[in-house]
């Protein structure tokens, strides 16, 4: 995806990231976040959560991956996310994005980001500033 091919209002292709326990375990080890809240459903329930939860920063990683899938080689300059509700491990999720602004001088695009949980509730909103190739 090149800057010249992008239009205001374009939707990014939706993705359905893998939020299985195996992937979350891999993530928490790489991210220094190996806590039972993320990897043990029973422990998480004892803390009042609906089950083991997907780390917020992992959601951010999924949204970045969606951007890279849409525009391989793109450079994310800034990614700002608000975590609104928990997402439970071993359920399903959907990532969406839309182009909301174009900066022609710097080949930057502004992208709205949302992540929905398995019930269709928005669990993450955010924006990214992305540099694209000519």
């Amino acid at each position: 995806m090149r800057f010249s091919e992008v239009e205001l209002g374009d939707d990014l292709p939706e993705t359905h990231p893998d939020i299985s326990m195996d992937k979350v375990r891999l993530f928490v080890k790489a991210a220094y976040m190996d806590f039972p809240r993320f990897t043990d459903h029973e422990f998480a329930k004892s803390e009042g959560l609906p089950g083991a939860i997907v780390p917020g920063v992992m959601s951010q990683g999924f949204l970045a991956a969606m951007i890279h899938q849409w525009a391989p080689g793109a450079k994310i300059r800034k990614l700002d996310t608000v975590f609104r509700t928990t997402m439970v491990v071993d359920t399903s999720a959907t990532c969406r994005g839309a182009v909301t602004d174009l900066d022609e001088d710097n080949r930057l695009v502004e992208v709205d980001l949302t992540m929905l949980n398995h019930e269709g509730v928005t669990s993450v909103i955010g924006t990214a500033t992305v540099e694209l190739a000519d």
Partner: peptide, 24 residues
């Protein structure tokens, strides 16, 4: 890999631009 990001910039050490994922 855990984020499902297959962009070689973040997943292939032989890529000349290999670097940490932006959210890392």
């Amino acid at each position: 890999a855990s984020c499902g990001d297959t962009d070689p910039r973040y997943s292939d050490p032989s890529n000349p631009d290999f670097e940490a994922h932006p959210t890392f």
